[in-house]
């Protein structure tokens, strides 16, 4: 087992925890954080595989991908937080309830 494999295993763990979090946690902020953890797992995985060839320099491609990914993750988080705040503002809820009780926009 090499170092990158160790980190890869950790990445997968993080990914699963994040997934579990999004699904199970009810509070929206927690869901947001879980999504970030999930993303963190994915990124960690990418960075770890950049070292898969165990030569001196890391593969730059996964690094570039992660960098892009981080920006995207941030945007998603910002959007999610904005929506969360808006939901709280309009309904007072902090969870994704009432899946059936849809009212049409007016």
């Amino acid at each position: 087992m090499s170092q990158y494999q160790l980190y890869a295993v950790g990445a997968v763990l993080l990914f699963c925890i994040g997934l579990q979090g999004i699904i199970v946690c009810r509070h929206l902020l927690k869901k947001v954080m879980a999504a970030n953890i999930m993303g963190g797992g994915a990124f960690l995985f990418l960075i770890s595989i950049a070292r898969r060839n165990t030569i001196e320099t890391a593969d730059p491609v996964p690094h570039a991908m992660v960098l892009t990914g981080i920006v995207i993750a941030l945007s998603a988080s910002v959007l999610a937080l904005a929506l969360t705040r808006q939901i709280h503002k309009t309904t007072g809820h902090t969870t994704l309830e009432d899946p059936t009780n849809n009212r049409v926009e007016k």
Partner: peptide
């Protein structure tokens, strides 16, 4: 901007993120 739309969007967002 109403509650339903916001909730639906957020649900959409989480699903999309997964």
């Amino acid at each position: 901007g109403n509650a339903a739309a916001l909730t639906a969007s957020l649900r959409y967002l989480f699903a999309a993120l997964i």
